[in-house]
């Protein structure tokens, strides 16, 4: 969501965001790691999980 408001001579924007709402982990690659029993464990590589962002910006 974004709200725009004015205080004095400045216009402010506040932006709130939930990224990756469903908390997906999409693998973009794998690394192999030796596991204790002699097998190979795959380490999936992704680009982050759910995150919350808040952004303030001002227009002069």
């Amino acid at each position: 969501m974004t709200q725009a408001f004015r205080l004095g001579d400045l216009q402010w924007d506040i932006r709130e965001e939930v990224a990756n709402l469903f908390d997906e982990f999409n693998a973009v690659g794998y690394r192999q790691l030796p596991a204790p029993d002699g097998s190979v464990a795959l380490l999936p590589r992704g680009l982050g999980r759910r995150v919350y962002n808040v952004e303030f910006s001002a227009r002069l």
Partner: peptide, 20 residues
């Protein structure tokens, strides 16, 4: 969305997992 655990530099946008 910024979707990394580490804070990024100002002006640097990171990608959500699905974007790749």
């Amino acid at each position: 969305a910024t979707a990394v655990a580490e804070p990024t530099q100002p002006g640097v946008t990171s990608l959500a997992p699905t974007e790749v």
